[in-house]
Amino acid sequence: MAKSFFIDTTKCTACRGCQVACKDWKGLPATPTKQRGSHQNPEDLNAKTLKLVRFADHTIDGKVVWNFFSDQCRHCIEPPCKIIADDLAPGSVIKDEKTGAIIYTKETKKISADGFEEMRSICPYNIPRRNEETGLIVKCDMCIDRVSNGLIPMCAKSCPTGAILFGERDDMLALSEKRLAEIKKKSPSARLLSKDDTNAIYLVAHEPKFYHEYACGIVNGKRFA
């Protein structure tokens, strides 16, 4: 039975415990950043930042809202990046049958920069990044080392408010539906994103565009439902 994340943005306080815990666990170094008029830093996912809390403030219906979106690989059930990668370097993207985790292996080194661009552009969520120093293509691996040893991913472990939950897919699906029903009472625009096709289900209270460009996935410039 696959595992899934349920990321409930209505509970997120953007404490960035997930972003930093991910780095600390994986030993990923910091990258140089600048203040650009936003709290979102680094500006985007990169080869050393596999988990990023995105910040977006808006005035919606006359009310100030500040949306937080803890972005990461969705671990697609049928990952497009794997289709590309299988052609370019077999074994570079694999799926762990036990957990459903999509994992980029050392074989990704064999993929050229152009090949990487192809992988990245087909990803509806704009997730893959390439480490220019090592040539590896990287992203969240669901903390497969922890999960295989009975632990939960570090981001979910760290999350103070239960905004990032991790568990059996069925449980996460049930939980997300239940939570959606509650949130809908106050926020009619609330919805679940990437629920049926991936193992990272997001709950948002407003239209996805108010969170992040790729919140609900884009292919050929068109958004997913």
Partner: peptide, 12 residues
């Protein structure tokens, strides 16, 4: 602490 300075690098 590099990961924290990365997240909030400069005075705003």
């Amino acid at each position: 602490t590099p990961a924290l300075l990365e997240a909030e690098p400069q005075l705003y």
